[in-house]
Simulated assay, not measured.
Amino acid sequence: MNGVTYITRDGDCLDNICWRHYGRSSDMVEMVLEANHGLAELGAIYKENIEIFLPEVIEKPIAQNVINIWD
């Protein structure tokens, strides 16, 4: 699995880490928690020097139903 390792600073929280890295936290927090077993047990605010793996996001194409008024 491709991605990067983030080393926490004192007071970091996962939603802010995801926001800074991915540009959003929606769905990303859950994905990062799945990739880092035991991270949820550390609480919401982290101490420094915790390694968190941030997996690469592969965007799936969004299927769009285009309705053409001429069809």
Rank of each mutant, 00 (worst) to 15 (best):
3 G>S: 05
13 C>A: 02
69 I>G: 03
3 G>E: 04
49 N>H: 12
12 D>E: 03
29 V>L: 03
3 G>I: 07
42 L>M: 15
40 A>N: 11
53 F>V: 13
34 E>S: 14
2 N>K: 12
4 V>K: 11
2 N>P: 15
47 K>C: 08
57 V>R: 09
61 P>N: 13
14 L>E: 10
29 V>R: 02
20 R>G: 10
19 W>Y: 09
59 E>C: 01
68 N>C: 06
59 E>T: 13
60 K>I: 07
60 K>F: 05
27 D>M: 00
54 L>Q: 11
18 C>N: 08
65 N>R: 06
19 W>V: 00
58 I>M: 02
42 L>F: 07
6 Y>Q: 00
10 D>A: 06
57 V>P: 03
35 A>P: 09
20 R>Y: 10
69 I>W: 02
15 D>F: 06
23 G>M: 08
14 L>V: 09
60 K>P: 01
42 L>C: 10
44 A>W: 00
27 D>T: 11
54 L>G: 02
27 D>I: 02
69 I>S: 11
25 S>N: 06
24 R>P: 01
1 M>S: 11
34 E>D: 15
61 P>Q: 13
19 W>E: 13
18 C>I: 04
63 A>E: 13
30 E>T: 05
1 M>N: 07
11 G>R: 01
60 K>C: 04
26 S>G: 01
65 N>V: 11
34 E>C: 06
50 I>F: 04
59 E>F: 00
9 R>Y: 05
38 G>H: 12
1 M>L: 05
68 N>K: 13
40 A>D: 14
26 S>L: 04
17 I>G: 06
9 R>S: 14
7 I>K: 11
1 M>P: 11
16 N>Q: 13
51 E>S: 14
69 I>V: 09
30 E>R: 06
15 D>A: 03
60 K>V: 13
54 L>P: 09
52 I>C: 08
61 P>V: 09
52 I>V: 15
61 P>L: 09
12 D>P: 08
66 V>N: 08
17 I>H: 05
50 I>S: 01
50 I>V: 15
24 R>S: 08
14 L>F: 05
29 V>P: 03
41 E>I: 00
29 V>M: 03
67 I>D: 06
31 M>Q: 10
62 I>H: 04
70 W>K: 13
10 D>E: 14
61 P>A: 12
6 Y>I: 00
11 G>H: 05
7 I>Q: 12
23 G>T: 07
43 G>T: 12
44 A>V: 10
4 V>A: 10
2 N>F: 03
2 N>H: 04
33 L>H: 05
3 G>A: 05
28 M>W: 00
19 W>L: 01
5 T>K: 05
58 I>V: 15
54 L>K: 12
61 P>R: 12
46 Y>E: 07
3 G>R: 04
13 C>R: 09
56 E>L: 13
57 V>Y: 14
55 P>C: 10
32 V>Y: 05
24 R>G: 00
2 N>S: 13
12 D>C: 06
59 E>S: 13
31 M>T: 13
29 V>D: 01
12 D>V: 10
30 E>M: 02
58 I>A: 12
65 N>G: 01
55 P>V: 07
61 P>I: 07
68 N>T: 09
33 L>K: 12
6 Y>G: 03
